[in-house]
């Protein structure tokens, strides 16, 4: 660092007038986390910069592309449109936690099998949204959503590589396999291996 660099830095430090940080205590991927965050910090920067959870991506930072999709209190949200400071007491799940839990191991295997990820930048957000489809289908308890319904639910998540068809295939494959597995469970037949991992 040059002498003038040091001058500038000390000058700027004196002028530090940032608003006070907020103390937040929340659960991230099942772990208790306490941090002080600036109010200007959005959830994605909080996850990426403060917690090192780089699986969630900032694709536009204005709430359109869906690459930053994570779960807050059980529902998917745009991480770039959530104030980290507002999350005291919240339960946050990211792609890292979702993967570790095994909840969507079958979905992820189908993404690989169908080549539903190319560059992969949208993929964590896409998986979070697809997991939301699976969760809602399970809540509804009934039939499998149609391809059009899958497309509609995914349509807030941009993918620039795949053309979406393989993603729809992977989600549909997973829904069908889980549906079959649920039927098989009722008949006391061993569950399909793919959905075994999701239990």
């Amino acid at each position: 660092m040059t002498a003038s660099d040091r001058e500038h830095r000390s000058a700027s430090e004196e002028r530090s007038v940032n608003p006070p940080q907020q103390r937040i205590s929340l659960t991230v991927n099942g772990e208790r986390v306490t941090r002080h965050v600036e109010p200007r910090r959005h959830l994605i920067d909080f996850l990426r910069l403060d917690l090192g959870l780089t699986g969630s991506h900032a694709g536009c930072e204005h709430g359109v592309c869906g690459a930053c999709t994570v779960r807050v209190d059980g529902e998917i949200v745009r991480g770039c449109l959530v104030l980290a400071a507002s999350l005291d007491g919240a339960d946050v799940v990211t792609i890292e936690g979702l993967s570790d839990s095994g909840e969507v191991a079958d979905l992820q295997a189908n993404f690989v099998a169908r080549n539903a990820a190319q560059c992969g930048f949208c993929t964590p957000g896409m998986i979070m949204t697809a997991a939301d489809i699976l969760a809602h289908a399970e809540e509804a308890g009934g039939g499998t959503p149609s391809r059009a319904e899958i497309r509609e639910h995914l349509s807030g998540n941009y993918c620039r590589c795949t053309g979406y068809q393989a993603i729809v295939d992977a989600v549909e494959d997973t829904l069908k396999a889980r549906h079959l597995a649920a039927d098989s469970d009722l008949r006391a037949v061993p569950a399909l291996q793919s959905s075994e991992a999701s239990r």
Binding site: T54, C119, G120, P124
Partner: peptide, 10 residues
């Protein structure tokens, strides 16, 4: 591909 679907790419 597995690292992409698990958010473990760099």
């Amino acid at each position: 591909a597995p690292k992409l679907v698990q958010g473990r790419a760099t």
